[in-house]
């Protein structure tokens, strides 16, 4: 009984999210692309990097990558704190 309630709630939630996602995307008009065009046209020459992904990740959106590296640093430090540190005495 409980299981069927849970499953029905899950199905309803999935249907709601699917409908919301479909409604959110406006299919008549394309997404605005001036930023993409700017990166494609100028990214290679401005940064000297042939890999546009690297140019965006490490240069234009470097702050995101700093956060990403900080998250990894925090993960390793958290593992050390949780599992690796011993108190003396």
């Amino acid at each position: 009984m409980e299981k069927s309630i849970k499953i029905s709630v899950l199905v309803l939630l999935c249907a709601f999210l699917l409908m919301a996602g479909m409604l959110m995307h406006n299919e008549d008009m394309p997404d605005s692309t001036p930023m993409d065009d700017y990166f494609i046209e100028n990214g290679q020459v401005q940064t000297g990097s042939n890999n546009i992904v690297a140019a965006i990740v490490f240069d234009y959106r470097g702050l995101d990558t700093l956060g990403e590296a900080s998250v990894l640093f925090g993960a390793a430090t958290g593992v050390l704190i949780a599992l690796g540190v011993k108190k003396s005495g």
Binding site: Q44, V45, T47, G48, S49, N50, A54, A55, F58, D59
Partner: peptide, 17 residues
């Protein structure tokens, strides 16, 4: 500095990347 368009690129490019 590298030109625009498809090229094989150089290892000593990219600045701080």
């Amino acid at each position: 500095s590298i030109p625009f368009g498809a090229n094989s690129g150089f290892l000593w490019s990219g600045g701080i990347i």
